[in-house]
Computed example of a mutant assay.
Amino acid sequence: MITNKKIRPDTPCVAVCSTTFDEVCRGCGRTVAEVADWVFMSQDEKDKVWDRILAQGFPRRN
Rank of each mutant, 00 (worst) to 15 (best):
T11R: 04
D44L: 09
I2W: 09
K5W: 13
V14T: 13
T3E: 15
V39T: 07
N4Y: 11
V24S: 02
V14M: 14
K6I: 14
V39C: 04
V49Q: 11
F21N: 13
A15H: 12
D22C: 11
Q56R: 10
C13M: 10
V39N: 06
I53M: 06
D37R: 14
V35F: 05
G57I: 07
T19G: 14
C28E: 04
R8K: 11
Q56F: 03
P12L: 08
K6Q: 14
D51E: 15
I2N: 08
V39P: 01
G27S: 09
P9Q: 06
A55C: 05
C28L: 02
V32R: 13
P9H: 09
D47W: 08
V49E: 09
K6R: 13
F21S: 09
N4K: 13
P59L: 07
T31K: 11
I53E: 07
A15W: 13
I53N: 02
E34S: 03
D51P: 00
I7Y: 15
E45C: 06
G29I: 05
V35N: 10
T11Q: 03
A33W: 07
E23L: 10
V39H: 13
V49L: 10
V49H: 08
R61Y: 14
G29T: 05
C17G: 03
R30L: 02
G27D: 09
N62S: 04
V24C: 01
G57Q: 04
T19N: 07
R52M: 09
F21W: 12
M41Q: 13
K46R: 15
V14F: 09
G29N: 08
D47G: 00
K6D: 12
K46D: 04
M41F: 15
D51W: 04
F21C: 05
V16A: 06
I2C: 04
D37A: 14
R60P: 00
E45A: 15
F40V: 01
T11L: 01
W50I: 01
V16I: 07
S42K: 10
Q56V: 00
C13S: 10
D22H: 03
E23Y: 06
I2E: 15
I7E: 15
P12Q: 11
P59Q: 03
N4W: 08
C17A: 06
E45H: 05
M1T: 11
R60N: 03
S42E: 10
I7S: 15
F58A: 01
T31W: 11
I7P: 00
P12W: 11
D37M: 12
T20H: 06
V16F: 11
D10Y: 12
V39D: 12
R8H: 05
K46P: 00
E23F: 08
A15T: 07
I7N: 13
T20M: 09
Q56I: 00
K48V: 03
P9I: 04
T31P: 05
A15R: 13
D10T: 10
E23G: 02
R52D: 05
F40M: 06
W38F: 03
P59M: 07
S42W: 10
A15D: 14
D22G: 07
M41V: 00
F58G: 00
R61G: 00
R26S: 08
R60Y: 02
C17S: 02
I2G: 03
V35C: 14
C17W: 12
K48R: 15
R26T: 10
T31M: 09
N62K: 13
G27P: 08
M41T: 02
D51I: 05
